[in-house]
Design a protein around this nucleic acid. Structure first.
Lengths: 373, 373
DNA sequence: CTCCTTGATGGGACCGATATCATCGTAACT
DNA sequence: AGTTACGATGATATCGGTCCCATCAAGGAG
């Protein structure tokens, strides 16, 4: 067929084979005036078959430049955007990666989502985000919703321990990556750091700095709403103190997850009230730690002269306050990026790779909120 | 049929009509061992038709309790999770709401996503989030990706002004809600506050407080990467000063969007260097404002005695620092919730409602970072 | 006793893409 | 020149659900 011979919109290709056969589904009269253009509309306008349009979009090399151009023009004229739901169904590739987080309202988790998106952008994967607000009951519901979208992989923070959840995961049969922790019994892959080790490291650091009266700040679990990873940190913290034969730390449980600046402020006040002689305090999150520092300023308690404060997470604000906050750094952005890379490998491989466990490590960031020996 | 008569897995309903006809698509041998269960597997196991299974899941009232139970058992046994892509294709309802944000790494935008999710949760909508990192070129790409998923509505921050983008929006033919600003030419619905008014309010407030040497802190636009809403605030700020016949404010443009604590610290330092006599400073974001307060502490500049600082956004940290930050509050969480409510109405109505414009208002929160007259 | 209504379920087409194979014209080879 | 190979394009079945009827049994009205 000579190029350009079929620019008129009638009498070509797909058109006749696609005549309605029996009773077409009701056109839902009076709803939306405009009918969204489909690949068929494009094919008709361009005078080619639907397959050719599909090829132009997914593998343009296969199509003659002249044809390609006709198709692109038709696409532009119609404002056509392909329907990925239909494409997914046929190709069995949705291009979705599911991500389940405790909350988005936390800079570090937001950073994970951010890094992950970036790593997956050029591979044309789209992140499907769900969050549980630290509620385990919600977790299962969210998981079901996510799986219904047929993601090609699943990224989780925190364990999914429900019976049903496990069954669903098994049936889904996709790569699962747990992040931001290193579980003793990972579902499959894991990439992160040990929250338990965070706690131990913090305790060790404070002990080595010569403190003997050490306190801690955490949230108190409330039914199904629990910050498991924060609890892990506390467990490590208490274990390390115990192993060092220190008297039990004073652990202030205050409020519920998620913690916040305000949480830290309330907690340190309560803690100091209960033990005015406390020398050093570890907070399970920088948010609490920063709040604690601010409250100390208000109470006239000098940091670090009167009380030393240590956090976790290395949030930006910790670098900016006075005194700057000593903290334990875990690189969440990199976590997201590396998870993205791992996913791309796993998905390219066909997903039958060995289970991997990657420790991105921890780093104590020494700043000014801890008194030197 | 007597209850329970068809528990054996053979010889019932759908089975015979579903024999493969010609050349079935290759079973991709050696890929995944497990085949994901489909509605057909459930129907066979339960001894009912696919339609009955579908009904059990979408409208259980229509199905006899006994039948319902059989189906539920089969679903549980197989770990069946319905494929929403298939369902969407058929029902033309994807259950997606698209949300486009500048970034997730901002507590206020994260709060919008959070509120929106909550408002839509029980209506069984799932949020599809994309973010642009303040990059307009990225915006169009992201928009196309979102529309390909056939969301039932689109929530945007900031204007989408590209030609192609408009065409796509038109063809998509879904409700569009712009949030966190009140554009002079809204695409359709809008719910938020006027960023221009934020700037004017801030300037008015500082003028009324008796300051005459007033500065401002903002990011500098860089090519396609621009914080349009922040620029609107600056425009309002400068206009108000001009209208009050004040000498032009000293506007410090420092770094690029998005702004951060660190941005504020650098900006105030540069600003004070350039004009040591500056009395009051408005920052387009609390993040910058808090960073500025912290830097002042470091420089030995007293807030508010030597310099007054005002922010925008009412971030949590602003409440906790010393002195607490005077700021302009816009309720982003409520914004998310109200947007969710509006969407539910729009979607129930069939989407042909009048274009609405809702102003959620602003509130100056007076705290300690501004010197009294 | 027949007809009609109602409730529960099934049959088949269809949503809008893509995988696969078929077709056809032309270039490259013996 | 005849044949094979290849490149470009088309036809058709199919992905896994749901919509719209059709069917059938049971109960009520006439």
């Amino acid at each position: 067929m000579p190029i350009g011979a079929a620019i008129d919109h009638a009498g070509s290709a797909d058109q006749m084979t696609d005549t309605p056969k029996v009773q077409p589904r009701a056109a839902t009269p009076g709803r939306r005036a405009t009918q969204r253009p489909t690949i068929r509309d494009v094919s008709r306008l361009a005078g080619v078959s639907r397959m050719t349009v599909s090829r132009v979009l997914s593998d343009p090399e296969l199509v003659l430049p002249a044809t390609r151009e006709k198709v692109h023009k038709a696409i532009a004229d119609l404002g056509y955007v392909p329907d990925r739901a239909a494409g997914s169904l046929s190709s069995r590739r949705t291009g979705f990666i599911a991500l389940m987080l405790p909350t988005l309202t936390n800079a570090n988790f937001a950073a994970v989502a951010h890094g992950l998106t970036e790593a997956l952008r050029e591979a044309d994967y789209h992140l499907l985000i769900a969050y549980t607000d630290y509620d385990m009951a919600e977790e299962e519901r969210q998981l079901r919703n996510l799986l219904a979208r047929r993601p090609e992989a699943l990224v989780l923070t925190g364990a999914v321990h429900r019976r049903n959840a496990s069954r669903m995961l098994l049936a889904a049969d996709i790569p699962v990556v747990e992040i931001a922790d290193l579980p003793s019994q990972p579902i499959e892959h894991a990439i992160g750091f040990s929250n338990y080790q965070v706690g131990r490291t913090a305790a060790r650091y404070l002990i080595d700095a010569g403190f003997t009266r050490i306190g801690a700040i955490a949230a108190s679990p409330e039914g199904e709403v629990t910050d498991h990873r924060g609890e892990e940190r506390m467990r490590g913290f208490e274990d390390e103190l115990r192993l060092s034969r220190m008297s039990t730390a004073m652990v202030m449980r205050h409020g519920t997850a998620p913690v916040s600046f305000h949480h830290g402020a309330g907690a340190i006040r309560a803690l100091v009230e209960r033990d005015p002689a406390v020398e050093a305090v570890f907070a399970v999150s920088d948010l609490s730690a920063v709040g604690a520092v601010m409250e100390c300023q208000r109470m006239g308690v000098r940091v670090p002269d009167d009380i030393s404060i240590m956090g976790f997470g290395d949030f930006e604000i910790g670098r900016e306050i006075n005194p700057a906050l000593t903290t334990i750094h875990a690189d969440f952005r990199a976590l997201g990026l590396r998870t993205g890379e791992m996913l791309r490998e796993l998905l390219a491989d066909g997903g039958d790779a060995e289970a991997r466990m990657i420790d991105v490590g921890l780093r104590v960031i020494e700043r000014a909120s801890i008194r030197g020996r």
